[in-house]
Simulated scan of single mutants.
Amino acid sequence: MSQVMDDTPQEITSLVGREVYSNNGVFVGEVEDLRLNVDGEAVTGLALGQLNTELFTDTARGTQGVIVPYRWVRAVGDVILINDVVERVKQPDEEEQEVVA
């Protein structure tokens, strides 16, 4: 459950281009950039592109991306794992219908 955070610049820039998945294994997107708090010297968000269109149909259209808070990051390795909260952003009505059906 601990977040993996490394303050070395080389490690931070190496996050760009990594694929992001929920901790349930659902592809979310790819890191295109980082949001930084320069004063606090910390990464505060991941700017994602190449989004999973099933998760972000209404949120991001065309070439837009999304920024996920870095506090959602669960682990960083070959890929980045984030909390499954991003999956719950997708239309809750659909999920309710699937449970009832």
Rank of each mutant, 00 (worst) to 15 (best):
L81S: 10
L34T: 08
I82R: 06
V66Y: 01
L15Y: 14
R71M: 11
N37P: 01
D39E: 15
R88Y: 08
I12F: 06
L51S: 01
D6W: 02
V38R: 13
S14P: 05
V76I: 15
D7A: 10
Y21G: 02
L15D: 00
D6L: 11
V86Q: 08
P9I: 04
E87V: 06
V66Q: 00
Y21A: 03
E98W: 08
I67F: 07
L55Q: 11
V85K: 11
L51N: 03
I80L: 05
I12M: 10
V85T: 14
D39Y: 13
L51D: 02
L15T: 01
G29V: 08
E94C: 02
Y21I: 06
N37W: 02
G65R: 09
S2Q: 07
V16N: 08
T53A: 06
L55I: 15
R35C: 05
T59S: 10
E30I: 11
M1I: 09
D33Y: 01
G25K: 05
P92K: 13
P69C: 04
T8E: 09
Q3C: 00
S22H: 03
D6M: 08
G45M: 03
E41F: 09
E96T: 12
V26H: 09
R88H: 12
F56H: 01
V99G: 04
V28E: 06
L55H: 06
G17W: 05
V4G: 01
V4T: 12
E87G: 04
E30W: 00
D78Y: 09
E87K: 10
W72L: 15
N83P: 01
E94T: 13
D7Q: 06
E32I: 03
Q10I: 07
V4R: 10
L15S: 02
V38T: 12
F27N: 05
R35S: 11
L51E: 03
E96F: 11
L81Q: 10
V26Y: 09
W72H: 13
L48R: 02
N37D: 15
N52W: 06
K90L: 15
V26K: 12
I80C: 06
L46V: 00
L34R: 05
E96M: 14
N83F: 12
T59L: 15
N23D: 14
R71Q: 13
L36A: 03
T59I: 14
I80P: 07
N24Q: 14
D6K: 07
Q50V: 00
L81C: 03
N37R: 10
D33A: 13
K90E: 15
D7K: 08
V28T: 10
D33S: 14
F27E: 08
R71E: 10
L48K: 00
E41H: 11
A60V: 10
P92H: 10
